[in-house]
Design a protein around this nucleic acid. Sequence first.
DNA 1: TATAAAAATGTAATAATTACAACCATGCTC
DNA 2: GAGCATGGTTGTAATTATTACATTTTTATA
Lengths: 133, 133
Amino acid sequence: MEEEKELLENTNIKPSIARVKVLEYLRNNKTHPTVEEIYTSLAEEIPTLSKTTVYNTLELFENNGLARIVNVGENESRYDADISNHGHFKCDGCGRVYDFRVNMEALETRGLEGYKIWEKHLYYRGICSRCRD
Amino acid sequence: MEEEKELLENTNIKPSIARVKVLEYLRNNKTHPTVEEIYTSLAEEIPTLSKTTVYNTLELFENNGLARIVNVGENESRYDADISNHGHFKCDGCGRVYDFRVNMEALETRGLEGYKIWEKHLYYRGICSRCRD
DNA sequence: TATAAAAATGTAATAATTACAACCATGCTC
DNA sequence: GAGCATGGTTGTAATTATTACATTTTTATA
Ligand SMILES: [Mn+2]
Ligand SMILES: [Mn+2]
Ligand SMILES: [Zn+2]
Ligand SMILES: [Zn+2]
């Protein structure tokens, strides 16, 4: 709450209720929630919240390095307050989206000479160990 | 045309006109087209084609290892007849989606012990060399 | 308080995707 | 070959995610 407020202020974003709460939600729920999930969770305590505001807020966060969009091959985007380069694993059994550590800087690529890269995204799909048991 | 027909037959998929044409399109246009692009391109020569058929066909191809879905952080999926593990680069200047070679097998990951992985997807975003000049 | 600027909202349009009903081709029975 | 059943194929229509934009509300400043 206070921490999120500060974080927003340090990024020169006005800490409105919606913004503080969305950021807080993202930092407390590392499940890579969808807009829908964020919206329905927060709508209880912020009855005036609209889904569009959630969209706007997340886009603002993305543009200011406070969140990243996470894409795991669904037709709905997810969001993550962890902006480090890490991988995501989507389990086709339980639907969960897990983090995994990976050294993406070490990846050698062929065919991108002279390209300016500003985002790297890696995701796997399969079955998690819980669902395999 | 004939080649695609055979490829479908070898995969035990009945080679209907729509299927042959979509596969042919994918194999001739390595631009990672969207459903919309495939549909509008083929609609001229197959006036009876519907967009849903394109969706159905691509899903069928995906399930049978004839195509892969390509996701580069847009809200529209793209498709690729190249099913090898390779990376995609989306240029935020011209919008093109480029291939690049990368050894994904060599990637060391932490946190996926005991997970069954059946798909790996890697994409970058940035500006291509043409757009930088 | 008045004014301006920024933020949040809602409506409605758009665009992607999916569910399911209708259609059609193939093979079988008579 | 006509009728009929089956499964495969197609398309209409509904649903859902996202965006555009105009309006309202809040906040900051004078
Ligand atoms: Mn993550
Ligand atoms: Mn490709
Ligand atoms: Zn699972
Ligand atoms: Zn470019």
